Amino acid sequence: MAQQVRGVVARAKGDPVTVETITVPDPGPGEAVVKIQACGVCHTDLAYRDGGINDEFPFLLGHEAAGIVESIGDGVTDLEPGDYVVLNWRAVCGVCRACKKGKPQYCFDTHNATQPMTLSDGTALSPALGIGAFIEKTLVAAGQCTKVDPEAPAKVAGLLGCGVMAGLGAAVNTGGIGRGESIAVIGCGGVGDAAIAGAKLAGATTIIAVDTDPRKLKWAQDFGATHVVNPKEEDTVEAIRGYTDGNGADVVVEAVGRPETYEQAFYARDLAGTLVLVGVPTPDLKVPEIPLIDFFGRGGALKSSWYGDCLPSRDFPMYVDLYLQGRFPLDKFVTDEVSLDGVEQSFDKMHKGEVLRSVVIF
């Protein structure tokens, strides 16, 4: 029987979000209903609200979530009610050309629930990243549920659902940062700090944080940055080279998504170094006019990272276990806890740079 629950909705571009009654249907074949325990407030949710993703309003926001499986539909064999899960937006299909190549982290046909959740008047909602988790209970594809150790609190485990995984995966999976290597991270919000924490976990010995906000640089040091650079005070490229014996970093993670910071990242690499773009640009932005000879002459790799090139079934349980072992500081990302009614205020705090991650606690 369909349920009526409370959830956060963005009805129109730029309008403040509202908490509304939402109808959640019983799970159909291949689907599951999950009772949400906590959900992080990600910049992507703000982008949905402001029309930066698409215009398929109204949106049901929220996607960095953990909770308990309440019910499952026909054909679901790897979940059962009571399972503790982190939700993901990469439910791999298993049959596309990427999956058949043994690279499911690049699945080209990820899937979501087929039934819509609706407003009380029957209007279908577009769930953010196919999840929609600023809600007491949500309907997802069963493959979007990744079982993890229930000893990890939902307010930290859920962060692996997007921002933390995107950042640490950009450094570790996409960038391939390794023991004894150097890395620079441009932009030290939640994603950038996750890249720093991932680099430290992987054994990088020179970890350079770049940001114009002194508060964010302090946070970056808490996650393992060995050096900090404020572009308002010094030249970014020269500073990174100065901390790497004049060579540039082995890996540079660009977590801003701007042409000017991308250009800095390009030149801040060592020869044959790797640049990883994980910051999300707006559609109007273009690649800076870098001379083609510089692409040829510097070599290396220019990559972009979606979701940290993660495979949720592999990565989520591993990083939860590392957190429980005291080796990966997921709890440090949580700087604010709010109720379902506090999402709009959390967006304002995000704009002002006052929080690393707000988390909605149910």
Rank of each mutant, 00 (worst) to 15 (best):
V95L: 15
L292Q: 13
G192M: 12
T114A: 15
A301L: 14
I68Q: 08
G143R: 00
G94P: 03
D15W: 08
Y243M: 14
T123D: 04
G178S: 14
F316T: 01
A239R: 00
I290Y: 08
F223E: 03
E70C: 05
K155M: 09
P291M: 05
P288E: 09
Y323V: 04
L292F: 14
A199V: 08
V355T: 15
E233V: 10
L340Y: 12
L275W: 08
Q144D: 00
T21I: 10
F108I: 10
I131G: 01
H111C: 01
K352V: 03
V19D: 08
V41E: 10
P104A: 09
T114Y: 10
D78T: 11
I293D: 07
G51R: 06
F59T: 03
D309V: 03
G62Q: 05
I207L: 13
Q144L: 00
P127Q: 06
V17M: 06
G82F: 02
A204E: 04
P312A: 00
K147W: 03
A194V: 11
K303I: 10
F266C: 10
A141H: 00
E31R: 04
V359S: 05
P231T: 02
R298V: 13
A12Q: 14
K218S: 15
A171Q: 04
E80G: 10
V228C: 14
V9K: 03
D284K: 15
F223P: 00
E344S: 13
F134A: 07
I208S: 09
G7R: 00
V95T: 15
Q325D: 11
D45K: 05
M165V: 08
G51I: 06
L61N: 02
E20C: 04
K13S: 12
D26Y: 10
R11T: 12
Y267T: 06
T282W: 14
T274G: 12
G189K: 03
F266L: 12
T118S: 08
Q37Y: 11
D270T: 13
E31M: 08
V287D: 13
I183L: 12
T226F: 12
S182P: 06
I36W: 02
A128C: 14
P283R: 09
R314V: 14
Q221D: 13
S126G: 00
D50C: 03
A268L: 05
V359I: 09
V287C: 15
D245I: 08
T146P: 01
V334G: 00
K352L: 11
A65I: 02
A38N: 03
V86K: 01
M350D: 08
A152E: 05
V17Y: 02
K332V: 10
V185R: 06
L275N: 15
F59H: 07
D235E: 11
R258V: 11
L275D: 13
V9A: 06
L271A: 14
V92R: 01
D83T: 04
A197W: 02
S126Y: 04
G158T: 02
R327K: 15
Y307S: 05
L356A: 13
A152T: 01
S346E: 11
V19N: 07
V156P: 01
G132P: 02
